[in-house]
């Protein structure tokens, strides 16, 4: 482990003042901004400033935060190198798509808003459970695998999941799944982001989080302190997979069209880039990494296309360069393992 600049965020210095910003304040602020924003955009008001495209970007940022934060649980806190996160996302996306189109009644058959909310709740719940199940199974199979081999096996599962979906005609096979109703909007995604960050923060600051960190720090010592590593690892995989499934479920019901290829190795790599950009073992870093990456990509797209429209694609060359430069110059990412005050625990007595 390379030396970070300060101890892990679970222990604020005794003499620091109680942090002023709390998690619930952030939740309130996000909702106070998100709900009017969504309503104004839906109503088509002030379309110059409140461009639906910006709202779409915010929605994508939200879904990516869920993915990156949940992968951080495995790669940052547990210290493993899991390479199959898009696979969990695929399971969630297809489960939600199936539930929303083929199992549940259409939103038209139910009262407005409430019907959509119900469908969304059930489909997302189903997506989380299905992904968690797959995550649990993978954790079970890889119970003794660590390091490089775990990376290989998780990637292998990612490929198998994508390949399996390609062979299921019922969900569209390689052509993809079309006609998914658009049940999500920015407010729903924002709520899910808050839920994800809140739950992950709570777990990381509990005995479960300390056990995960101890495995990362010294697996043998952790084991000889009575930690069942397979069990702890399996919990982490199950939880991380569940949230990746949540992001997948939101994704499917936002894009309305999914193909197996959108969940392959390239998606996993994109999640990794954002994770390492922000910083490992820091939820603040996960949020910042996603925002910085998305904003940067958009800026590059606009900047490059002012010269020539076809140049916009060249930003795909810049994102791997950013990743390489981060690794060469600042391996701890933008935030290292620091946390914003509202993600740190309350000052203990």
């Amino acid at each position: 482990m390379s030396s970070p600049s300060q101890p892990l965020p679970t222990a604020p210095p005794a003499d620091s003042k109680p942090p002023r910003v709390r998690f619930w304040m952030v939740c309130v602020a996000v909702l106070v901004l998100a709900i009017p924003l969504q309503l104004l955009v839906d109503a088509g008001l002030y379309s110059d400033v409140l461009n639906p495209y910006y709202l779409h970007l915010l929605t994508v940022i939200g879904m990516n935060i869920i993915l990156v934060a949940s992968l951080n649980l495995l790669n940052g806190y547990l210290g493993e190198f899991a390479l199959g996160h898009a696979g969990f996302m695929a399971v969630g996306a297809y489960t939600a798509a199936l539930l929303a189109t083929k199992v549940l009644p259409g939103a038209a058959a139910m009262p407005p808003v409430i019907g959509t909310v119900l469908i969304l709740l059930v489909s997302l719940g189903g997506a989380m459970i299905a992904s968690a199940g797959v995550g649990y199974l993978i954790g079970l199979v890889t119970f003794k695998t660590v390091g490089d081999y775990l990376a290989i096996i998780t990637l292998g599962f990612n490929m198998i999941i994508v390949n399996a979906i390609q062979n299921i005609e019922f969900v569209g096979g390689p052509r993809g799944f079309t006609g998914i109703p658009k049940n999500t909007n920015f407010v729903a995604v924002a709520l899910c982001v808050l839920l994800t960050i809140g739950v992950l923060r709570n777990l990381i600051q509990s005995t479960f989080g300390r056990v995960w960190l101890s495995i990362r720090e010294n697996a043998i010592a952790a084991e000889l302190m009575g930690v069942s590593i397979p069990k702890a690892k399996n919990w982490a995989f199950t939880i991380a997979a569940a949230f990746a499934g949540l992001a997948g479920g939101l994704w499917a019901q936002n894009q309305q069209f999914i193909t197996p290829r959108s969940f392959d190795y390239s998606k996993t790599t994109e999640i990794l880039v954002m994770l390492y950009l922000g910083g490992m073992a820091s939820l603040s870093g996960s949020i910042l990494g996603v925002v910085a990456y998305t904003v940067l990509m958009e800026l590059l797209r606009n900047l490059l296309s002012t010269f020539a429209p076809q140049l916009a694609e060249w930003r795909m060359l810049i994102s791997p360069l950013i990743l390489i430069i981060i690794m060469l110059t600042r391996q701890t990412g933008l935030l290292g393992n620091r946390e914003w005050s509202w993600l740190r625990p309350k000052q203990g007595a």
């Binding site: 390239s266 790599t269 994102s319 791997p320 360069l321 990743l323 390489i324 391996q331």
Partner: peptide
């Protein structure tokens, strides 16, 4: 070690 592995991922995408 993970930093190098991630760098190799970046080089590949590049």
């Amino acid at each position: 070690r993970m930093s190098v592995v991630i760098t190799t991922l970046g080089v590949g995408i590049f």
